[in-house]
Computed example of a mutant assay.
Amino acid sequence: MKNICYSGAILALTTLLLTGCEALQKEYMKITLREQDKVLTFGREAGLEKSVTFSSTTSWTASVQGDWLAVAPDSGNSGSNTITVTTLRANDGNDGRTTEITLTAGGDPATITVVQKGTESTDDPDPNNPDPDEPVVSDEKFITKIRLTGTEDPNDVSDFYIAYDENGNIVGTDRFDIDMEAGECIYYSHVSHTVTGSDGNEITVLTRNEWISTAEMQSEKSEYTSSILLDDNGNAVRQPYAVGDEDLWVEAAYNADNTLKTWIWAGKEYENQEIAARWENGNMVYFNEEDITYAPEYAAPETETGFDFGFFLILENWITPASSYMGTPSTNLPAGTTGDSPRTFRYEFDGTGRVTSAYVEEWELHYEIFYGEQEMQEYPKPVL
């Protein structure tokens, strides 16, 4: 009887884990629409067209309800895609009519509501889209979540959550790294940084780490408290990167206008192998033996405070509460780097000028950027 009960418990646990992993995998298979593209409004005439650009983590299909509307193409691959929506027939009725376009990529579908005006339709704006020719203006000012995926493997995901105080300073960050293989969660990592207090020019941060690896059949938990030191202008000038034998730290220096001048990652064991960055005229121009290039079409994200997203890309995913204290954001987003392993960055923006996607072309990486309040999802953990 004990063996039967034990086997039943194992089966139930296995089912629960697989269900959780499948749900997580499904959640990663998604389409991201810009807010202003979720409702399209057309006049009553046939032959009117509008374009919609969206990003998908995997291959996708599009379907339309009704015979007066067409969408092309009706399928595509992962990455950035653009579809053209066309009215096939004039609306000879008095009232407007509504239908939907459904975009599906394996997970929850994304829906575009399409309105075509009738013969007696007024020019009053659609309450769901006050002016379809103008972008929807949002009060969501700060980047609060970043999702990193490899375009060839959407199951290997990193999620970054960022919490701010009323002044726009980062008071907490959470990073989750999840690796799934054939529907099975094989790696889990969670690193959190939480501001626990401040005293003058010193901010106290509690850092917690947890990781589980089925490949190594190991797991580990740790936590430590460290301090971020600020100058008299409120800029971060020193922050420990880790606590331990290596004693690593980050130091930054600033210009008179509080723009960043230099940033150095170093330690007692790495004095001759430090990682350094340099800024000129508000833009990062050098990082660790790489020069940074810029393009006029890539302006900085329209966030009033927060952190420097271009700096985040160059540093390859390094973010802590100190990130929002490191001077003013760069004037522009980097277009690429030169050196032994050059990188090319490509961006997508919404109608308000906020960056919504960033791509590292050579490394086939995709960053999705989210604003406003975010709900932290539950991430499954492998069982050793």
Rank of each mutant, 00 (worst) to 15 (best):
G168M: 06
Q374H: 05
G172L: 01
Y270P: 02
P127W: 03
I101L: 01
I143H: 03
F287S: 13
L333Y: 05
L17N: 11
T15Y: 09
T293S: 14
G282W: 01
G47H: 07
T225R: 04
C21T: 12
P329I: 09
F42M: 00
I4K: 12
N332W: 12
G306N: 01
T58Y: 12
R89F: 08
F287K: 08
C185G: 12
A72C: 10
R147W: 00
Y188W: 09
G306L: 02
Y188T: 12
V115Q: 12
V243F: 08
S219C: 13
I10N: 01
Q239I: 07
T122W: 00
F54S: 14
M376N: 10
A253P: 08
E375S: 10
Q65A: 15
Y286N: 00
N209T: 14
T320E: 08
F142N: 09
S63F: 08
A335N: 02
Q377Y: 11
N94Y: 13
P334L: 04
P154R: 07
L16F: 08
W318K: 13
H190E: 07
D124F: 07
V237N: 00
S341V: 01
E290L: 01
T225W: 06
G200L: 12
R147Y: 02
I212P: 00
P382F: 01
S78T: 09
T356K: 15
E120W: 10
I203A: 06
I83Q: 02
M284P: 05
T86V: 09
V171M: 08
G267T: 11
G20I: 08
M217W: 06
R238V: 05
D108H: 07
K381C: 02
A110F: 04
S63R: 11
N258E: 13
I369E: 00
G79H: 00
M326R: 00
F345I: 04
Y286Q: 02
D139S: 12
E202Y: 03
R343K: 13
K30Y: 03
T86M: 06
T82Q: 13
E289Q: 10
T204Q: 10
E181C: 09
T98V: 14
S158P: 02
N233R: 08
L230S: 11
V360E: 15
E49P: 09
P154L: 03
V250K: 09
E368M: 08
R44F: 14
P130M: 06
A276G: 07
I264R: 14
P73R: 09
S198W: 04
A110T: 06
L148N: 03
E181F: 11
T144G: 01
R175I: 00
M29F: 11
N281E: 15
F307I: 04
E210Y: 10
